[in-house]
Measured scan of single mutants.
Amino acid sequence: TQSIHIEKSDTAADTYGFSLSSVEEDGIRRLYVNSVKETGLASKKGLKAGDEILEINNRAADALNSSMLKDFLSQPSLGLLVRT
């Protein structure tokens, strides 16, 4: 696993530069990185398409609903625990 911390203040970007997809496997919801913008903040921090997001801001990914995800992604900083 890899811990990634991203700050939007690093650039004038209003997004982190990646998209997520939610997949249900064996009754457990998993979050995967769908795509990463080549010039985006997430790419600079090493996030890659296909990575599994285990935690966002110290909250287990399978416990997050879509409104919580939207809220986290609109925050000025983001902490991710990722399995590559």
Rank of each mutant, 00 (worst) to 15 (best):
T1L: 14
Q2G: 05
Q2I: 15
Q2L: 13
Q2R: 15
S3N: 14
S3G: 05
S3F: 15
I4R: 01
I4G: 03
I4P: 04
I4Y: 02
H5T: 09
I6L: 15
I6R: 03
E7Y: 13
E7C: 14
E7F: 07
K8Q: 05
K8A: 05
S9T: 11
S9I: 00
D10Q: 09
T11V: 08
T11W: 06
A12S: 12
A13D: 15
A13Y: 10
D14W: 01
T15K: 08
Y16E: 04
Y16M: 02
G17R: 03
G17S: 02
G17E: 04
F18W: 03
F18V: 11
L20V: 14
S21A: 13
S21R: 14
S22H: 13
S22L: 14
E24M: 11
E24W: 13
E25S: 10
D26P: 04
D26N: 14
G27F: 02
G27E: 02
I28A: 10
R29F: 06
R30K: 14
L31S: 04
L31G: 03
Y32D: 01
Y32K: 03
V33L: 01
V33K: 02
V33R: 01
N34C: 09
N34P: 02
N34H: 10
N34S: 14
S35H: 09
V36A: 03
V36F: 00
K37N: 07
K37S: 14
E38V: 09
E38R: 11
E38N: 06
G40Y: 00
G40A: 06
G40T: 03
G40K: 01
L41K: 08
L41M: 05
A42I: 04
A42C: 08
S43R: 10
K44A: 10
K45A: 05
L47G: 01
L47W: 03
K48D: 04
K48N: 10
K48P: 01
K48R: 12
G50R: 00
D51N: 02
D51F: 04
E52L: 03
I53Q: 00
I53W: 01
I53K: 02
I53C: 02
L54G: 01
L54E: 02
L54R: 03
E55Y: 03
E55C: 03
E55G: 02
I56R: 01
I56C: 03
I56T: 00
I56K: 04
N58Q: 11
N58G: 15
N58K: 15
R59Y: 15
R59I: 15
A60C: 15
A60W: 01
D62W: 10
D62E: 11
D62Y: 13
D62C: 11
A63F: 06
A63M: 12
A63S: 15
L64R: 00
L64D: 00
N65S: 12
S67R: 11
M68L: 08
L69V: 14
L69F: 11
L69E: 06
L69G: 00
K70D: 15
K70I: 09
D71T: 10
D71W: 10
F72V: 11
L73K: 07
L73V: 05
L73E: 14
S74V: 09
S74P: 05
S74A: 11
Q75H: 06
Q75Y: 08
Q75A: 14
Q75N: 11
Q75S: 12
P76H: 15
P76S: 11
P76R: 10
S77A: 12
S77N: 07
L78A: 01
L78G: 03
G79L: 15
G79Y: 10
L80V: 04
L81A: 05
V82G: 02
V82M: 05
R83V: 04
R83Q: 08
R83K: 11
T84W: 07
T84P: 15
T84L: 00
T84A: 07
